[in-house]
Design a protein around this nucleic acid. Structure first.
Lengths: 342, 342
DNA sequence: AATATTAGTGCAATCGATTACATCTTTTTT
DNA sequence: AAAAAAGATGTAATCGATTGCACTAATATT
């Protein structure tokens, strides 16, 4: 039974036809008679034929593979995006190769090259936090390899992007806090290359302005936005003895860090300090109090990114104008910010 | 600049040598002179040569790709396993293709075939919860394609497996509850094909026996073990008016569901009912109270699975005896089970 | 009935890298 | 100095599927 893998040549030999006819039959080419197609399909099944995509890919110059680069895969947001990409890609008979950059530029470049050597038909990337060089992406563009940036994007590379309206997210979060009566709203952010935090910050500023709340720069804390950073910033904040009645953290992780320190210091959330995070990480509904946050619809983002990718792929021959897809975020109001509700 | 991609033939032409020499030089073949190697490497860089792995894969019959099938990628446990696999695989110059079965057998088979068509060199799989057919995996074995099962495994297929000692995990969790003084310990489980829950259940039973606590079958609840199932089971449990002082849920999700219902009904955790979950999902440290659970070391599991895979690959020529790697779980004690501590 | 179409297949080159075998130099051995 | 060995490179087939072009036979057109 376990003879070597069958090829189209084996099928051809059995049926006394040529491999080209078999190939056409398998691809449902209209120039092949129904009878032959039936025979080929039957024999393919009999011989347990499995097409060798490598060979086809080599010949056609298309591997049916998409590369994805994310900073880390085991973060709910990113793995959900990947899930979304996969759903769309698989339907179109594409497979997804996943790679992690670990927030390191050199790693990002190395991993990108590895994907290219594997001959992926294109790449979807969420840029590392510390990435400050973009030549490798510009190269891609020049070589005509489809590239879509999502979430952590940059405008330095003229390609399609999929983001949520981070500005709006920041605005909604801040506005919500203001409506809860907060006036001294601390903001945790990270104003590096990547756009997302800048945008959330912009939303924060705008909401303050629209509501005539004076902006106090000393209430803005910059960090790496991990849980530990949230802890550190909050400790500094408390130590500074500044007055504040809310924290809008542009990351859920930092928000949880803040929550921990606040609780440890007997500061009541939301009574003393209202708290809002960003991303709707799964754990945010399980904290005590549950964390108000902004949903980024990661699965939808993945789907949109994949669709964007296939648009580039299809438009390939003609000139293609990069699209920027902006998804609407949604404020998820939970207990950590509800001063009035309780 | 953006001429067509350079091949070894282009390099050969430039240097007035043949492609075979270039190929050997690039592969650091000892039969090629140092001078030629240097020249080839230099020209490769000049021409911005990127090897076409597809062509090499076709010729060598090895794609340097590993397929992974998980029920769903956006679950911390699975994405962390994938992370572990990737770390090991990338070091050995392999790439990882990720696919999801969505807990559906047919999907699992389809996705497996897709991976095989992409000519992966082997497959790592965590079996879907409802999978009750294993022919597709047996086929793989017969065809000599390396297969490693992890976490959700079965003994029906004679291949290498990587699991944690679920029995021990179940035992540790139950024993811990007993030490906290609990005597009527409810167990949430799912006794289907897949081994893991059976093993945890066995640990539960054994711990009871070793501590002379009578086993009460009516305290065992079976479900799909999602959050909602945990809620349902707990509601039933409360409605039944059975006496119980602890719940050991073989899933963190169901445990959180239980926690929610208990709190909603004014049952205090851990005072009235101690609670232990399983998996150490990230959210377990953020619940109120924080959830005692069992860590499965998913990244380590991924690394072990990858190593197991490469062992099979290397031993390919000789006969290979499937290995079962058993990782030790660790009980993470948090507040939800600490009656004494507080 | 002669010519033009159309349907259905075959031929052979091709994608890019690898590799068994052959060939040609040099160098070493005796 | 002739024979043997080692060193360096070339030749050509190969992996499996695809596809432009050619070809035959059957059908349609005038």
């Amino acid at each position: 039974m376990a003879s070597k893998k069958a090829t189209i040549h084996d099928i051809a030999k059995e049926l006394n036809i040529t491999a080209s006819t078999v190939s056409r039959a398998l691809n449902n080419n209209p120039r092949i008679s129904e009878a032959t197609k039936k025979a080929v399909l039957g024999m393919a099944k009999d011989l347990n034929y499995q097409p060798n995509n490598l060979a086809a890919a080599l010949r056609k110059g298309k591997s049916q593979l998409i590369g994805i680069i994310v900073p880390t895969i085991n973060r709910s947001f990113f793995s959900s995006v990947i899930r979304g990409v996969e759903e769309v890609a698989n339907k179109l008979n594409y497979r997804v190769i996943v790679s992690q950059s670990n927030e390191d530029v050199d790693n990002e470049i190395a991993t990108l090259n590895a994907l290219l050597n594997a001959r992926v038909d294109g790449v979807l990337v969420s840029i590392g936090k510390n990435t400050d060089r973009f030549e490798h992406y510009k190269d891609l563009m020049e070589r005509g390899i489809p590239l879509v940036l999502f979430d952590r994007t940059t405008n330095e590379v003229g390609t399609s992007q999929v983001v949520i309206d981070d500005y709006l997210g920041g605005y909604l979060a801040t506005e919500h806090l203001i409506k809860q009566g907060c006036k001294k709203i601390v903001h945790f952010t990270n104003l590096k290359q990547v756009n997302i935090y800048k945008e959330r910050y912009r939303g924060y500023l705008e909401a303050l302005r629209d509501n005539d709340i004076p902006f106090d720069e000393s209430l803005v804390y910059q960090s790496d936005m991990q849980l530990v950073d949230g802890r550190n910033c909050t400790e500094q904040l408390l130590a500074s003895h500044k007055k504040f009645d809310a924290i809008f953290s542009a990351s859920d992780y930092a928000a949880v860090g803040a929550l921990q320190i606040l609780k440890e210091n007997g500061v009541k959330v939301p009574e003393d300090v209202a708290l809002v995070g960003f991303s709707n990480e799964p754990f945010t509904s399980f904290t005590d109090p549950s964390l108000t946050t902004v949903s980024q619809f990661p699965i939808e983002m993945g789907q949109a990114a994949a669709e964007s990718f296939f648009e580039i792929l299809e438009a390939k021959k003609k000139k293609f104008i990069p699209q920027k897809t902006v998804l609407q975020p949604e404020l998820i109001i939970r207990d950590s910010s509800l001063k009035s509700g309780k």
